[in-house]
Amino acid sequence: MRGSFEVLVSSRRLQYRFTIRRNVTVIRGDSATGKTTLIDMIQDYNENGIDSGIAIKCDCKCVTLGSRNWQRDLRELENSIVFLDEGRRYVMSQEFAEIIRHSSNYYVIVTRERLENIPYGVDEIYGIRTSGKYGELKQSYHEFYRLYENIPYGRQGMNPQKIITEDSNSGYQFFIGAFEDRECVSAMGKSNIASLVAGFSEPVMVIADGAAFGPEMERMTEIMKVRKEIYLYLPESFEWLILKSGLISRENLQAVLANPAEFIDSEKFFSWEQFFTEILTESTRGTVYQYNKKKLAPVYLHEVSKAKILLQMKPFLEKIGW
């Protein structure tokens, strides 16, 4: 499935309106915000249709997934938005991750667990808030909000001398070359970043793929609340930065970058980072910019290339005093 979907779920008392943009959306936040109530409403509608007193408006089917026979149910579902409430232990399993990896469905998962097996995006972690009441029926209106819309930065202009990247692939190789007067450290995997950062006392900049960094966000932002000089830069991915830079030309590229959801098939790409890697690799094959995720071609560190890529980071770099 591809595209983004507006969802409206309503009853006499309640209305939820939100947009699902990627294959995996996570809902968490405080207790008593209406997460379980939303899932219950969708389940009531699934089981009773119009008799439920609930209306759902969406261009694709919205269903809930229970605890029993979940593997069988998942295999039978296609092109649907599947909602899961917390309390489903299997959501943490590798088996669940493997099944949804090759599924045409989108998933909305209520959980405070990390779900480290699932590479969900930082932008698709939401809380629910009540925005007011509508009309004479005093219907409460609920909407999703991005939990990490405004990542809490420390003091501006701290000029961190240390950079941490997720791994030692092309991105790391680029940042070593681009910031050669700073120390660049590979965390050897995104799940190691929080521990690594916690061990440093000096200002540090973390660069990671926002498209798959969701499982790390709670740990990172909690550390950032007690350690003020941590700066988090989360582009969709390093490949996305290159594509945005204008270095590479490709038919339809601007349209893809403006609205990736319309082009990324959930059955083929578990995370958007994989999609951007594929189109960068395809677009540069046989050219001087031939992209290899494991080893960065030297051309990307030529002055013009470097400047174009770094220009995409300019607002962030200015904020930290570079």
């Binding site: 207790s31 008593a32 917390e86 309390g87 405070r112």
Partner: peptide, 30 residues
Amino acid sequence: ERLSGGVKTLMLIKFMPEMVFNASTCGNNC
């Protein structure tokens, strides 16, 4: 039964001290 998951877990913790419950069903407001 329709109270929030957080409050229900808090009550289980309060009134069933001999058991251990998953408190990640509670938000930070708990």
